[in-house]
Design a protein around this nucleic acid. Structure first.
Length: 259
DNA sequence: ATGGTAGACCTTCTA
């Protein structure tokens, strides 16, 4: 079973690129972030034609996440628990049904810039809520995977030019510590477990020729529960997609489970 | 010290 995550930076502006990738990669499950549209504007029919069930948690202009799955989705949850006042659409979760079900949480973690602002506090608060939610999921002892755009550069090796990011919210000690603490609950980071080679990036900014200079960072991650880690078979970063026409600034990451 | 690009949308905000 292949489970993908991809921050598409507007699903409607990018629909041709997105559908081309789906037809080539044929993921069983996909998490999309930054769809940048309300539920009614999501191109549901286009994905249904490719055989996907669709669950959307959309928002006007900003954010927005979606789950796509060949198998039916059950127990769908929209929004990260822990703050009823949080109106950003940044989390959707569901159980992919079947003989060997897997719970999938689709994450669009706040960017948090600039650091000296309420946005950084929001990022850290969101990470604390994610931590609490992951802890409650772990108590169920189920197979689950939390994947998406974490907006965290975990280590210096996850940036081509780490010094460029020293004042950025994605690389602050607090952001990195919160990501580390999340993993230390007992989650396995898929990429490190399956490959681990440095220089594997998932995001290149549109600006200042970042792609041409390989000025990239690894910020799209997949964290697995112990039951999911038991069946982890591989991870692939679809780097080449960044060179396509009208690319997102992120590329897809595909986790393979032996299911 | 700042600009560089992209998307949504109305003029500036977010990334």
């Amino acid at each position: 079973m292949r489970i993908a995550t991809w921050n598409v930076n507007s699903v409607n502006a990018r629909i041709e690129t997105v559908l081309r990738w789906f037809e080539e990669a044929k993921p069983d499950v996909a998490c999309l972030q930054e769809i940048k549209c309300v539920d009614e504007k999501f191109p549901t029919e286009a994905f249904e034609r490719l055989g996907y069930n669709v669950a959307v948690h959309g928002q006007k202009t900003y954010n927005g996440v979606a789950l796509l799955s060949k198998a039916p989705l059950e127990d769908i949850r929209r929004g990260l628990p822990g703050d009823d006042g949080d109106d950003h659409a940044r989390y959707i979760e569901a159980v992919v049904s079947g003989p060997e079900p897997v719970r999938v949480g689709c994450i669009y973690l706040p960017n948090g810039n600039p650091v000296a602002s309420e946005k950084f506090a929001y990022k850290l608060g969101w990470m604390a809520r994610l931590h609490a939610h992951a802890r409650s999921l772990l108590a169920l002892e189920e197979r689950f995977i939390l994947l998406g755009d974490y907006n965290v550069i975990p280590e210096p090796r996850d940036a081509e030019f780490p010094a460029n990011w020293e004042r950025d919210a994605l690389f602050q000690p607090e952001s990195r510590a919160a990501f580390r603490a999340l993993k230390n609950l007992g989650l396995t980071e898929a990429y490190l477990q399956a490959d681990g080679a440095p220089g594997a990036y998932t995001f290149w900014d549109y600006q200042a020729g970042a792609w041409q200079r390989n000025n990239g960072i690894r910020i799209d991650h997949a964290l697995l529960s112990p039951q999911a880690a038991d069946v982890l078979a591989g991870v692939a970063i679809h780097r080449d997609v960044r060179s396509w026409d009208k690319p997102s600034d992120h590329v897809p990451v595909v986790v393979e489970l032996g299911l």
